[in-house]
Design a protein around this nucleic acid. Structure first.
Lengths: 348, 348
DNA sequence: AGCCAGCATGTCAACGATTACATTGAATTT
DNA sequence: AAATTCAATGTAATCGTTGACATGCTGGCT
């Protein structure tokens, strides 16, 4: 049943035991061509007896090095959104019999090229990349050697690649509209690095919601370049100390959402709050959140990869997944300021 | 500078361009043996001009399939602790020029064997496994074909493998002692699956702290088999409704810590609380926590793997990393029950 | 001068699986 | 019955890299 435990069993061993040639063993294993049932049975028995397992590397090598593994470049493992994407992708690939090679840039985008390159060298069948938000182009087609690339999270101008993204602009617009409908006029928007595609996309949604109602943005309430939760947290303190503080706040990424939530708990704030992306705490504390399904994003990316491996000449596709607002309470708070409604300010 | 973009460049191409044989190209690339400087320069130039990059799969194949990649089997991507381990391991491996093949069992331990097997088939140089807590033995030496295994998180009886673990027993004992020193006598301990190695290890620490002071365990305060944060959360509500509720609570894993913390925020509880493992919220909300460094665990696991690849005959090593108590306030609360001290109960 | 040492490089088989092409022999056709 | 066809299997080249072994050449030694 099991092998000897030492020597790796090869097709050759199986062939010898079954008393036939390696070609026939392969034929049985691929059940590609005609093999007489009796021969097939002998081969199967030998395979079983020796515990033979094919060597995927040798197979890949023979096949021009395209088959077994797919790469994923991410910027960090310890972000729930990214981890979710990886989980979804891995699941889908595993079902398709593919393996996942993962590398992380540790938030250092300059490492993206070398990481991608190392995977391409290893002849992954496809490469999924979650590029950092900044719109540099780091993958030049000349270095890809035909390796299909799937971009996760944002498109990249110079590259004719498949893309999976989420409609955060529309989602944020919907969230903003909900707040506007509740009467909020001073809505704070806290965003990440302003050079990033995602920050632009999300602020874009916020702005078009305002613009659609002919409202103008309040510059003091839009804060960009917040990198850490701690920054978001202290920004909230600053905002609430304004002469005319916001009555609602939109947190435009996961870290910011965490920071705002910490501030909210600590200072027992009551203003309306919509977070972006889910965490154990946003759901646990009934925070209204604009939610994307990271696992679904990962699954779709993997599907694109699998399709493209099967049909390399397919035109590039872009899949946009919907984000949706999960209403849990904090985003449904009307203007309940102990100060005065806008437009008729009067000193306290 | 760059290659043509289509045909993969091989040693042979380099050899032809440099006007020498493939063997010499290899010699230059490995700088293993003597090569005359001028030849070396010619080879380098050809490599540069063609943009040659060696094919790691072919190299691995030639080397009996041991070199380029190391496997990691984890149970889920979306747990901060596990993600941290993966991150640490990836970093260390990358520095050593190795790549990381990741698979997840999706919390289904029965998938461990097939996942491990698939990686062994792919001839990873070493296999790191974070086994689920239950003490089954899923890796039979006969199936490993000499692949070194590094166990992360718990030892496995049947296997002579390297192990990285953390001294949670000692840590929990320390945490318990701190609470006892503060005068707590009704300490709740909330633990995960009672079949798991880790739950046993941690409850063991709790129990020896009590035993060392001649105290007996309060059975109604020790709750096991809590799987989800929600269960932990509702358990807290039950405990606080006891005639004699706990004055302190120890949460013995990350999910439980989250659940207890949610309960604490929601109900504004003041009892002493020590969490296990770190999350953005435990630090953000000043929760005293028994902290392990997941990245360090991952790095150590990777180091063990690297060492073992270099020296397969090394005796198996076990590395135990210290956990330590990060005192932020909630674990330093003395008995402040609005009820009465123990031993002199009187109806309210 | 003749011989050996040793350096620089070349040749070729091998890693394990696959597959184009070759071979065998039996069955079918006329 | 000879010729043809086709099904079943075998042979050997191949994927890209490596390294044991072979070769040839230079220089030093006696």
């Amino acid at each position: 049943m099991a092998g000897t435990g030492q020597h790796r069993v090869t097709v050759k061993d199986v062939a010898v035991l079954a008393g036939i040639s390696t070609a026939t063993v392969t034929r049985v294993l691929q059940d590609s061509e005609k093999v007489i049932p009796e021969t097939r049975a002998r081969v199967m028995a030998a395979v079983e007896q020796l515990g033979y397992r094919p060597n995927p590397m040798a197979r890949d090598l023979r096949h021009g090095n395209r088959a077994g593994a797919v790469g994923l470049v991410m910027s960090t493992f310890t972000n729930m959104y990214q981890a979710g994407v990886a989980a979804g992708a891995e699941k889908e690939l595993r079902n398709a019999g593919l393996q996942l090679l993962i590398g992380s840039t540790d938030e250092d985008p300059t490492r993206e090229p070398e990481l991608a390159r190392a995977m391409i060298d290893r002849r992954v069948s496809a490469l999924m990349v979650m590029p950092d938000g900044n719109e540099r182009e780091f993958l030049s087609p000349g270095h890809l050697f035909g390796t299909p690339v799937i971009l996760v999270g944002r498109p990249a101008g110079g590259l004719d690649a498949d893309v999976v993204m989420t409609d955060d602009d529309r989602g944020v617009e919907e969230a903003t509209n909900q707040l506007l409908d509740l009467g909020h006029r001073r809505i704070a928007a806290l965003a990440g690095q302003n050079s990033s595609f995602r920050a632009k996309q999300r602020l874009g949604g916020f702005r078009s919601a305002l613009a659609n109602r002919g409202l103008k943005e309040e510059p003091d309430l839009v804060v960009e370049n917040l990198i850490t939760p701690a920054q978001a947290r202290s920004t909230m303190a600053d905002l609430m100390n304004l002469a005319s503080p916001p009555t609602a706040v939109l947190a435009l990424n996961l870290g910011i959402s965490t920071g705002v939530l910490l501030d909210r708990i600590e200072n027992n704030r009551k203003l309306a709050f919509i977070a972006l992306d889910e965490s154990e705490l946003s759901s646990g504390l009934h925070v209204t959140a604009l939610v994307r399904d990271p696992e679904e994003v990962g699954r779709q990316a993997a599907k694109l990869a699998i399709d493209r491996i099967a049909q390399p000449e397919l035109p590039a596709r872009t899949i946009t997944l919907a984000s949706h607002l999960v209403r849990r309470g904090t985003g449904e708070i009307a203007v309940v300021d102990d100060r005065e409604p806008l437009e008729m300010a009067q000193p306290k």
